[in-house]
Amino acid sequence: MTTASPLPSNFSATSTLPPGATAPSSLPFIPQYSFPPFFTLQPVASTRSSQLSSWSTHIQSYCQHNRIFSLTLVDALNTPLFHNAQIHRRLNLRDAKVILAWMASAEGGNRAEFISTSTTKSKKAASGEEDGGKCWIYWRRPEEWAAALEEWVDRTGQKGTVLTLYEIVEGDASLKEEFWNMDEDLLRKSLAVCVRRGKAQIFGGEGSEGVKFF
């Protein structure tokens, strides 16, 4: 999992994918990606379920490789994620939503979560879609991020010290970590998990929160 560390520096975590951005060639796409029927949702239930799980794997590995934490569907449809230019196939918006909805369900392992548009910062998503235009892709779920954060704090002996959220995602100390440059909202979600477990406490004013691990 950690091998996907080469960071495309032009990706800021919250930004939607720039149109025409191509994935670095080193990303191994799953074999089904060059199989044309993969881009049309299959009507037969068993085929469909395996197709859905393949898509889920594909989306997760793509996002992990490019360190994308959230997708805006309308923009993502034009990226290699949903558009295989070599075989001239693309997934349509409706099917993409179906796949993401499946990923967000318990059956799909809660690997995605739709962001309600009222709090969405992306204006494109708000104008393009009423709901479900933007969603988290959890190639690591908040609980898993929380565990990674706790492990990092433990390993670097930072228990009991005060850390700023900015420091965690942008600081030099976490430069080699997987959560470096992570989406701040996702970080908050993950830290909230730590707080619920009693492993950390968040304090300070809005926008300048700090966290203390125990």
């Binding site: 005060v162 850390l163 700023t164 900015y166 420091e167 942008e170 304090f203 300070g204 300048s208 700090g210």
Partner: peptide
């Protein structure tokens, strides 16, 4: 802790 946080925020 709060004072330290303030300082660290300033640093950030």
């Amino acid at each position: 802790d709060k004072a330290i946080l303030d300082m660290k925020n300033q640093r950030d």
